[in-house]
Simulated scan of single mutants.
Amino acid sequence: MAYKDYYDTLGVSRSASEGDIKSAYRKLAKQYHPDKNPGDESAAGKFKEMGEAYAVLSDPEKKKVYDTYGHSGQVPPGAYPGGAGGGADFGGFGGVDGSQFSDFFQGLFGRSGGRGGMGGAGGTQVNFEDLLGGAGGGIGGGRRFVQNVEGELQVSLREAYSGTDETITVDGKRISMRVPAGTRNGGRLRLSGQGPGGGDVLLTVRVLEDARFELEGDDVNVTVDVPVHVAAVGGPARVPTLKGDVTLNIPAGSSGGRQLRLKGQGWPKKGGGAGDLYAKLNLTLPASLSEQEQALYQQLADLRK
């Protein structure tokens, strides 16, 4: 099995700071984002691997376990958050293929379909609560064990914004569920009675960072490339939003770095309505200029002297 090194996946050293890890992830995610590489399975695979690596290295507890036991792949009892361990072989944690980490919990708790994956480097935690059942709860009226299963579900920013349907597997049973629109990072979802023995399934939602959009409270920030001549004289430009692209009229004389607000195009608010989207202008020039264009730019430069 191939060794999977999360630091190598993100191209950072083991001494990299939290900021370095975040910066490396955002740079690579922008390069391999599915929206920029439609139909490219290789890019999609790399994008998923980067999300898996970032999910571990951006979480202090998971990173600590990975740094401590990563080379051996053997996690002692109680070392991993949620009580996993006891010599369990956590695949991606050194020496074995990262997919084995997901396989460790597959029989009890898995996710099929969709991106991100249950378990794996996302850090599925399995906890059990033993509750006494009434008479007849087990063979001969013995104890009846109810198991609460706790895990982490990864979704993209767009999926969290619009909501998404997922299918997970708990104790061999496939369960369809809905992640509500506007779900925040760290949000908790409870599937009552869907766990082993009638227990609950408790999911913590991790919203993966997006290479294009940045969420700040209820507002969304995005950078928009605008040709310099459009910024100078004004004109339309396409602005990406979480709902889809819209046309925005760029005011004449706009400079690079200027932010234009699109009201109500941000993240859904709990009490109704939505935040705003702020489009930051990035002025661009053609990669090459014709002789006529060069002459016109020279005329403009002479006028500005």
Rank of each mutant, 00 (worst) to 15 (best):
N127T: 11
G197N: 13
T183W: 04
E216R: 13
G91P: 05
T183C: 03
S254M: 08
R304C: 04
Q147L: 04
P240W: 02
Q299M: 14
D103A: 07
K36L: 12
Y3G: 06
P38K: 00
I21H: 08
V222P: 13
E129S: 10
G198C: 05
S13H: 15
Q100R: 10
A24K: 06
G198S: 10
A160E: 12
V233N: 10
A295K: 12
D103H: 06
L285Y: 14
L300V: 10
G113I: 04
G235S: 05
R158I: 10
E152F: 15
V126S: 04
G151S: 15
G107N: 11
V246F: 03
P76E: 04
D171M: 03
G198W: 00
V170D: 01
F105Q: 08
G87S: 09
G83L: 13
G123E: 11
A29M: 14
T284Y: 05
S162I: 06
K243H: 06
G142L: 10
S255F: 14
V233L: 09
V12T: 07
N282D: 06
T124E: 12
L300E: 12
A160Y: 12
S15R: 09
R184G: 13
H71P: 03
G136R: 04
K63R: 14
G138W: 07
F101E: 09
G272Q: 05
G198L: 08
G95R: 12
E150Q: 11
T169Q: 01
H229Q: 13
P81S: 02
P77N: 01
S99R: 05
D225V: 00
L260I: 15
Y278R: 06
S15A: 15
G195C: 04
Y66E: 08
A231W: 08
Y6A: 03
A252S: 13
G244R: 11
A44E: 08
P81E: 01
S15W: 02
E61N: 14
A252Y: 07
T164E: 09
G39Y: 06
G122W: 13
A181S: 14
G11D: 08
V246T: 14
G119M: 04
E129L: 07
V179F: 13
A274V: 03
G19C: 02
V170R: 05
V12A: 07
G140I: 00
V239L: 03
Y80Q: 02
Y3L: 05
D219W: 03
S156V: 00
L296P: 00
R14E: 14
G140Y: 05
R174K: 15
A279D: 02
L108I: 14
S42K: 07
G117S: 02
S72K: 02
V126G: 01
E214N: 14
S15T: 14
Q31C: 04
K36M: 10
V201E: 04
K305G: 07
Q74C: 03
N282M: 02
A274H: 08
G271I: 08
V220I: 06
P76R: 07
G117Q: 01
Q74M: 09
G51R: 11
G114A: 03
R206M: 04
Q294R: 15
V224W: 00
A53Q: 04
M1R: 10
N282C: 08
K243M: 08
G193C: 04
G141I: 00
S42P: 00
Q100K: 10
N148L: 05
L191I: 09
G234D: 14
P76V: 04
F105W: 15
